[in-house]
């Protein structure tokens, strides 16, 4: 067979899979979002209502805006905290040596853990009666002892953030260690010889060199934060009330618990918009490298 034909035949299977398992549902979700789409009715299509679902979400549903706000704050908090902590940890681990190398190896463990299980373990850790973190915080700051962390809207939100940050620090750290290793040693040494302090070297030499990797990490983390579902579902199930209800959870709840598939598909599409922007930025970074 000629290469000219073969090369297209070879990409066919995976393109077909992507079209069928990602692009089709994306389009189909959009179609669903234009219909009333109640799960209680047996078959689709149902009544066509155009943009009404979107209008309803944006104009009439405080719960939608609550989910937007929760997701926004959640994304902001987790991105800032995870990136800052991972950068700190990466800088700590970069000098190498036995201890640091073994810690670096251990970092892979939380990352291989199912996010649902991360949620479960944080529920365990923050149990007001026998949770280890609860005991720790109570020891450091007694007013926090034996608090029902997940029953308080404010604290529950921050426990979710903590679980997320805990689960993502390892991966971001490993990426940043890779990025730091690529910063040329002689530039750093030259700056040190010139008498620059450690802080100046970091600020003026290392960080600018690290900027492209940091950009990748920030975009990637933002995307995963926006999508957050697993840990939140297991930790708080969106509660108390709707204090930790992220957009994914809101869509899940409306679509599958309340059976409003059409409405939840419209919210899902509203959620796709920021994704497209982030994905575009990410693709730019990837292809600039290639």
């Amino acid at each position: 067979m000629r290469d000219r034909t073969l090369k297209y035949l070879l990409v066919l299977p995976s393109i077909a899979v992507v079209l069928a398992t990602a692009i089709w549902p994306l389009v189909q979700s959009f179609v669903l979002s234009l219909y009333q789409g109640l799960l209680t009715r047996p078959k689709f299509p149902q009544k066509f209502i155009g943009g009404e679902n979107y209008a309803w979400a944006i104009l009439e549903e405080p719960a939608f805006w609550n989910a937007v706000a929760v997701t926004g704050f959640y994304t902001l908090a987790t991105v800032v905290l995870t990136v800052a902590a991972a950068l700190g940890l990466a800088l700590l681990l970069v000098p190498g040596g036995r201890l640091r190398a073994s810690v670096q190896t251990l970092l892979i463990l939380p990352f291989a853990m199912s996010p649902a299980l991360v949620g479960v373990s944080f529920r365990f850790m923050f149990n007001p009666e026998f949770g280890l973190f609860d005991a720790f915080f109570g020891l450091v700051f007694p007013p926090l002892a034996h608090i029902s962390w997940l029953a308080d809207p404010f604290l529950a939100f921050w426990v979710c953030v903590m679980a997320d940050v805990w689960g993502w620090i390892p991966f971001l750290t490993l990426v940043l260690i890779g990025g730091l290793a690529a910063v040329p040693r002689d530039t750093i040494e030259a700056a040190q010889v010139d008498g620059a302090s450690g802080w100046r070297v970091l600020k003026d030499v290392t960080l600018p060199q690290l900027a492209p990797v940091l950009a990748v990490v920030i975009i990637l983390k933002s995307i995963f934060s926006l999508k957050t579902f697993d840990q939140v579902y297991m930790l708080t199930n969106g509660g108390p009330g709707t204090a930790t209800q992220t957009l994914s959870h809101y869509i899940y709840f409306n679509g599958l618990k309340y059976g409003q598939i059409g409405y939840s598909a419209s919210v899902a599409w509203l959620m796709v918009i920021p994704m497209i922007v982030l994905t575009y930025a990410y693709a730019k970074l990837v292809f600039r490298k290639a």
Partner: peptide, 23 residues
């Protein structure tokens, strides 16, 4: 094609699952 494949990773799972549930 490569961008499309890459972008697939970023589509929220909850968006994908709704039509599949119905189907």
């Amino acid at each position: 094609m490569l961008v499309m494949i890459l972008a697939t990773q970023f589509v929220p799972a909850v968006v994908i699952v709704l039509p599949f549930f119905v189907m």
